[in-house]
């Protein structure tokens, strides 16, 4: 039995220790906002926050989150940074097919926590692992900059 905090609520699951968090979220807990995209940690579609840092849930065994805090796309609006990021994403209509966007938004939240005013180089470094086959990168970059300024103003 693994117990962890998921989106501010405690959950327990009775699954194999090595079951990846991605499939625990999607197939056991019914939280399907976190996506599957590749077999070797190459796409970032499955990104979630673990103790505030971005991790690939496809490579994170559920045992590694025992007793820890996990945030998924379904709960970003409850987070002050997440809410701003989500708003900007909607204002700029970043999404196309949308399949990668949960991962993009979560990765952006982690980036902005670590670097409140990221440069383009910071964005490249932080976001290169998050593939968007629709190539919405121009808007993702613009949205990150806008979210950073919005948060800067709010925080000031």
């Amino acid at each position: 039995m693994q117990t962890f905090t998921l989106n501010e609520r405690e959950v327990s699951v009775d699954v194999a220790d090595d079951m990846p968090l991605l499939w625990v979220l999607r197939d056991e807990l019914g939280l399907t906002g976190t996506k599957y995209g590749c077999d070797r940690a190459l796409c970032g579609a499955c990104t979630v926050l673990l103790e505030g840092a971005a991790v690939r849930s496809c490579m994170t065994p559920v045992s590694a989150v025992d007793g820890k805090n996990v945030t998924t796309i379904e709960n970003v609006a409850a987070d002050p940074v997440g809410r701003v990021v989500q708003d900007v994403w909607r204002r700029l209509d970043v999404v196309q097919c949308g399949y990668c966007q949960s991962g993009q938004i979560i990765a952006t939240m982690a980036l902005l926590r670590a670097k409140p005013r990221p440069t383009d180089a910071d964005i490249d470094a932080a976001m290169d692992g998050n593939v968007c086959r629709c190539a919405t990168y121009v808007r993702i970059r613009a949205a990150i900059h806008q979210a950073a300024s919005a948060l800067g103003v709010e925080g000031a």
Binding site: I73, E74, W89, R90, V95, G98
Partner: peptide, 21 residues
């Protein structure tokens, strides 16, 4: 005008075949 699918695609609720159970 904003896209009609932006909302659902930014909060995890948009339903893809992968998600249907």
């Amino acid at each position: 005008l904003r896209r009609k699918d932006s909302h659902a695609k930014t909060n995890g609720s948009a339903l893809f075949t992968q998600d249907l159970k």
